[in-house]
Design a protein around this nucleic acid. Structure first.
Lengths: 190, 190
DNA sequence: GCTGAAAGTGACGAATGTGTCACTTTGCGC
DNA sequence: GCGCAAAGTGACACATTCGTCACTTTCAGC
């Protein structure tokens, strides 16, 4: 019973992501976004009251997708496979941690923003809950060093996605190297 | 033959760093900085023409200090000590990589900015040149895995500083864990 | 004390971002 | 076709940042 949409939510979130990565949270404006979508700035206000709400909504959406993928970790029977899956998921998702950093800066101006941030924090916890058993299983089976704190191991794996890509080194080679370092370190076994 | 300074360059750079970490490049303004320094905004223009110039100048200053420390790596005779020194330097300098990321966003509006960015890039190269021999020495002495690309190893070590600190885990314990992972990985030797 | 030069101030016009609102456009159900 | 409601537009008032400039303050040397 209404006019056809010019703005697709998918496209809007995609461009939001792009702009956030390029300009950071404070450099993100409705004007920039509207230009990219080929639409008037005021049109975006039909969907989101301000940039805090829009950005947190985008992040919830992104988190949902990643979480969805992550839960498939339980489809693998062996620890080694689970660990490998986790590393792949994170290494080929290298912009997530930047988003997390940006998320921390968003002030809770409106109730909707507060609600979105609450959901984000919840996702974070749920992801941790999902993965920690894998880590503990690795320790229990004697495959992972027991004295390393779980949170540090997870934070470490997560952060590895941010290691810069250098020209001359392919993505696959890069990922393989990072995976090897996480598992066995840079030094030879003495 | 002039009036006493109210603005100290040291203090100015310190607050610049603070503000950059809190608000990012695009959220940094002369107004914010002037407030923190207890000075009029226009006073800062006596020293820097705009924020690009100020920020790049600060970064050059910071880089100089880090580089200065880094060169002491050659004071250590053994590879193990050099490697340990490198890790300590980076792990206890955990905001550097954020600065690098910010540096990439700065547009070259003025000649002075261009010059500063040139010097920054040069520092980057010089730091790499300083450390690469250590990596190669480790490989030559059979202590480091030869198939890992030098740049990935260095990028990796550098990036490790960004692993988040969790409450309940002391800085020392954190650093010790990270160091262990970099050297030998998270898995037990099968 | 007078002077000159560096240090700092306050106010201005220009540019950009924000949120809102009256308005137009579009398409579905009747 | 008519009407209605959702989608999108353009302009307005307000706030913030930017760079500049004429001005005042301070202090060292004469």
């Amino acid at each position: 019973m209404a006019r056809e949409r010019k703005i697709s939510l998918t496209e809007l979130f995609a461009q939001t992501k792009q702009l956030l990565l390029e300009h950071g949270y404070e450099g993100f404006t409705f004007g920039l976004l509207a230009d990219r979508l080929g639409v008037a700035r005021s049109a975006i206000y039909k969907y989101f009251e301000n940039k805090e709400e829009l950005i947190t909504a985008y992040m919830v959406d992104e988190m949902e997708q990643v979480f969805e993928k992550l839960t498939r970790i339980h489809d693998f029977p062996a620890f080694e496979e689970q660990f490998r899956f986790l590393l792949d998921l994170i290494l080929y998702h290298d912009d997530l941690h930047e988003m997390i950093a940006i998320g921390k800066k968003i002030p809770e101006t409106h109730p909707k923003v507060k609600e979105n941030k609450r959901r984000l924090a919840q996702f974070h916890e749920r992801m941790y809950d999902e993965v920690q058993p894998v880590i503990q299983r690795g320790k229990r089976e004697g495959k992972m060093k027991p004295h390393l704190p779980d949170r540090v191991v997870l934070g470490y794996i997560f952060q590895s996605a941010a290691v810069p890509h250098f020209p001359g080194i392919s993505l696959a080679e890069w990922a393989e190297s990072i995976r090897e370092i996480i598992m066995h370190g840079v030094l030879n076994r003495n």
